[in-house]
C-alpha cells in the first residue's frame, strides 16, 4: 500500500513537471503580506536533571501551553 501511494505521488509529480505551462502564475514575483489566526505555544518539560549543588526540573504536570492570536508580517518572492 505504501509503495502504491509513493508510486502515485511520483507519477503525479512527474506529470506535473513534464506538462507545459498554459499560463503564467500571478504569484511569480515579490510579495508582502500580513496575517493573523490561532497559535498554540507548547512548553514541555523533560525529566528533572538533578545536580549536587541545588538544581531542578520542571513540574509537576510537566507540560504547559498557551494559545493566542499572532500578528505575522511576511515578505518574499516566488520564481521559476
Amino acid at each position: 500500500m505504501q509503495y502504491l501511494v509513493i508510486l502515485i505521488l511520483t507519477a503525479l509529480s512527474t506529470i506535473g513537471w513534464c506538462l507545459p505551462s498554459h499560463a503564467e502564475s500571478e504569484f511569480k514575483g515579490f510579495y508582502g503580506q500580513v496575517a493573523t489566526g490561532y497559535e498554540d505555544n507548547r512548553f514541555s518539560s523533560i525529566n528533572p536533571n538533578w545536580r549536587t549543588s541545588g538544581s531542578s526540573g520542571i513540574g509537576p504536570g510537566g507540560s504547559q501551553h498557551k494559545t493566542g492570536a499572532p500578528l505575522v508580517l511576511g515578505g518574499g518572492t516566488f520564481t521559476k
Partner: peptide
C-alpha cells in the same frame, strides 16, 4: 494549468505571545 515555482520568504511575529506559567523545583 501546470506550473511549479520556488519561493523564498521571511516572516516576523512582532507581538509577544501571552504568558504561560510553569513550576520549577528549586533546591
Amino acid at each position: 494549468t501546470n506550473d511549479w515555482l520556488i519561493g523564498f520568504g521571511v516572516d516576523y511575529h512582532p507581538l509577544a505571545q501571552d504568558n504561560g506559567t510553569f513550576k520549577v523545583l528549586t533546591n
